[in-house]
Amino acid sequence: MKFGLLGRVLGHSLSPQIHAAIFRALGSTDTYELLEREPEQVAAFVQENGAGLTGSNVTIPYKEKVIPYLKEIAPEAEKIGAVNTLFFTPDGVKGYNTDYLGFDRMLQAAGISLAGKDVTVLGNGGAAKAVLQVVADRKAKSVQILSRHPEQAKDSLQHFLAQRPDAEVRLYADARPGSAVVINTTPVGMFPKVGASPVSADFTKGAEAAVDIIYNPKETRFLADARQNGAKTCNGLYMLVAQAVASEEIWQQKKLEPALIPDIMKQLEATFHG
């Protein structure tokens, strides 16, 4: 079977490396390629079943653009308003969001619970949408979203805010302190700019857990500060691999061994910094 990643600029993607590791573990000869397309080519790509592919991941800027061309959309993807996985079937193209599944599985693996907790999410980009949906579905007590542009954030997060009208969207400078769980969905602190953090060092004081969806470096400045403040910490590598495994489970139509995720994580970690 053939798979790929639909996007516009894909040179730095780790997806081929991750899926190749999955194929090796399965003993398959399946392939995964990068599929760079311009916006005007997206509709034809989906409508023509990816030109012979069994499935495709979707990355920015096309996670919303593919939705009108789908026959069916999974509940979590519909609630988020974004699709990152396409399954080309004889009955039509089906859309899923495995970023959601990957983040949820990561929290479970790390032993981090959101139920009944005050949660702060840093950022409101594409990754934040899947994260916030997990936060809502896991029944967080309160949700604070920090953004540099709150009004724009409210526009982009309409799907989420319709479900959680009690959620607060604030400027970083106006942040309410004291959340039990703080989640960074911004790229601040990613290699090579590893010294930066989206919040001050004391922002996570008193927090039970801090989560960063960045995976390179292994410990960002944000996570280092949180660890020094006594919080449990978790980076985004598990999410990265788990969302790929979840995509393969959809395409292969079977559950894969849970041990596959940490095995692939170890392979990847050798190539990262910090």
Rank of each mutant, 00 (worst) to 15 (best):
M1E: 06
F3T: 03
V9K: 15
G11H: 07
G11V: 03
S13N: 08
L14Q: 14
I18H: 10
I22D: 05
R24T: 05
G27V: 03
S28V: 08
S28I: 07
Y32T: 02
E33N: 07
E33S: 12
L34G: 11
L34A: 09
R37A: 12
R37F: 15
P39H: 05
E40P: 04
V42G: 14
F45E: 13
Q47P: 08
A51H: 14
G52W: 09
V58I: 01
P61K: 00
P61T: 11
V66K: 09
E78M: 06
K79I: 02
K79M: 12
G81R: 10
A82S: 10
A82V: 05
A82P: 06
N84M: 08
N84Y: 06
F88L: 11
F88W: 04
D91K: 15
G92R: 09
V93D: 07
V93Q: 09
N97I: 01
T98P: 12
T98N: 13
T98K: 08
D99Q: 11
F103M: 12
D104P: 04
R105D: 13
R105W: 09
A110Q: 13
A110D: 06
A110P: 00
G111W: 07
I112C: 04
L114C: 02
K117R: 14
T120D: 12
V121K: 11
L122I: 15
G123A: 13
G125Y: 12
A130P: 00
A130C: 03
V131I: 08
A136V: 13
R138M: 07
K139R: 12
A140Y: 06
V143R: 02
I145R: 07
R148C: 01
R148G: 05
R148D: 06
E151N: 14
E151L: 03
Q152T: 11
Q152R: 13
S156H: 10
L157T: 00
Q158E: 15
H159W: 03
F160A: 05
A162S: 13
R164W: 03
D166H: 05
V169H: 00
V169P: 01
L171W: 14
D174V: 13
R176G: 08
R176K: 15
G178Q: 09
S179F: 14
V182T: 10
V182C: 07
F191W: 03
F191D: 02
G195E: 13
S197F: 08
S197M: 11
V199A: 03
S200G: 14
D202Q: 15
A207R: 03
A209E: 01
A209T: 04
A209M: 09
A210C: 06
V211T: 07
D212P: 03
I213R: 02
N216T: 03
T220L: 08
R221F: 02
A224K: 15
D225P: 00
D225F: 04
A226W: 02
A226D: 13
N229Q: 15
N229Y: 12
G230I: 01
G230F: 06
T233Q: 07
N235C: 04
G236V: 01
Y238A: 09
Y238P: 06
M239G: 05
Q243I: 00
Q243K: 02
V245L: 11
Q252Y: 12
Q253G: 06
L256N: 02
E257C: 08
P258S: 04
A259V: 10
A259W: 08
L260Q: 09
D263S: 14
I264P: 00
M265H: 05
K266Y: 05
Q267N: 10
A270V: 00
A270F: 10
F272K: 09
